[in-house]
């Protein structure tokens, strides 16, 4: 449905995104994750034909975003970071206007606008002037604007930013409800949002795609570098040295109550091999006591930090 190939966009000398490539299948919800200023908005603007790419191509439903931009525009709904609302208009008038410029026939207009308002639950404010609405309602009017012409692809730039927790949940539910009929790209810098709403994640940092997978796989793969928490009794320094000799162990850090009776150690390991039995064996052979060993799966948060900060060394 969406095919992005090596898209690069420069602003002057600065590259906002370099060599971005990814695909989205029909009906998928894909999360576009990255810290602020990573190039999420730029990528979305290229996809929605707002910005031309400096190089590379992107196609939506088989139409090139640059060469056949009018065809693409008919098929996308776009909610920019700031919902594009005419503050002085009434909700219904605004949606009617959007429906018109999106090319909906006059006879289908009231149904289309009605449905969009229904789906986004704004029917009760349809005669209100937009500037008097709350932020949450404005965001929903923005969403209604994006879906009014029932587009195949929805591009949502940080749809939940600035909302209160209740509104966030509502908007997320709304987006989930839209999946299936629509292919959705959703950008965010909020991690739980991705694991909650998206089937697949593209992590982007400093204008580059650093990872692309399902949330589960991302956490699993990176759990290749798994973390173990050990509660252990014995000489800490010696234990550390011994554990570090084990193949696969990357680092051993002692945590709080460091004494010979019981101390907590955190072990980070690389590779996918199971090292827990080896560690247990090593400890028992030396005659130290092992009270507890826990494996901690990395959360998406860890994955994200791991991917987006690895060039600057370990996370503080």
């Amino acid at each position: 449905m969406i095919d992005v190939k090596q898209v690069t966009r420069y602003f002057g000398q600065v590259a906002a995104v370099t060599d971005i490539s990814f695909q989205v299948e029909k009906g998928e919800i894909i999360g576009f994750l990255g810290p602020n200023a990573a190039g999420k908005t730029t990528t979305m603007r290229v996809l929605t034909t707002y910005l031309p790419a400096t190089s590379g191509t992107a196609t939506i439903a088989g139409f090139d975003v640059h060469e056949q931009s009018m065809e693409v525009r008919k098929r996308i709904g776009y909610l920019p970071e700031n919902p594009p609302l005419y503050q002085e208009m009434r909700v219904r008038d605004y949606l009617n206007f959007v429906a018109k410029i999106k090319g909906i026939e006059s006879k289908n207009m009231s149904t289309a606008v009605g449905e969009a308002m229904e789906k986004t639950a704004i029917t009760d404010v349809k005669t209100r002037v937009i500037k008097h609405l709350s932020k949450g309602y404005k965001q929903r009017v923005g969403l209604a604007q994006a879906i009014v012409h029932n587009p195949e692809v929805l591009v949502l730039d940080e749809p939940t930013v600035g909302l209160d927790p209740k509104q966030i949940i509502e908007v997320r539910e709304l987006i989930k409800g839209l999946a299936g009929d629509h292919t959705i790209i959703l950008s965010t810098h909020i991690l739980p949002e991705v694991s909650m709403t998206c089937e697949r994640v593209v992590i982007i940092d400093k204008g580059k795609v650093v990872a692309e997978d399902t949330p589960e796989n991302l956490t699993k793969n990176l759990s290749g570098s798994q973390q173990l928490t050990l509660s252990i009794g014995g000489p800490v320094k010696e234990i550390k040295e011994n554990l570090l000799k084990i193949k696969g162990v990357e680092s051993v850090t002692a945590k709080e109550n460091v004494n010979n009776d019981s101390s907590t150690l955190i072990i980070e390991s690389k590779g996918k091999d199971e090292i827990r039995p080896i560690i247990a064996k090593a400890i028992v052979e030396k005659g130290w006591s092992l009270y507890e060993m826990k494996s901690r799966d990395m959360s998406l948060e860890d994955v994200f930090l791991h991917l987006t900060t690895k060039e600057e060394g370990p996370v503080q």
Partner: peptide, 14 residues
């Protein structure tokens, strides 16, 4: 200023 230009230039109108 208000960002509605993004609506106009991503809608099928020249």
């Amino acid at each position: 200023r208000s960002g509605t230009i993004e609506l106009l230039s991503t809608s099928p109108l020249t």
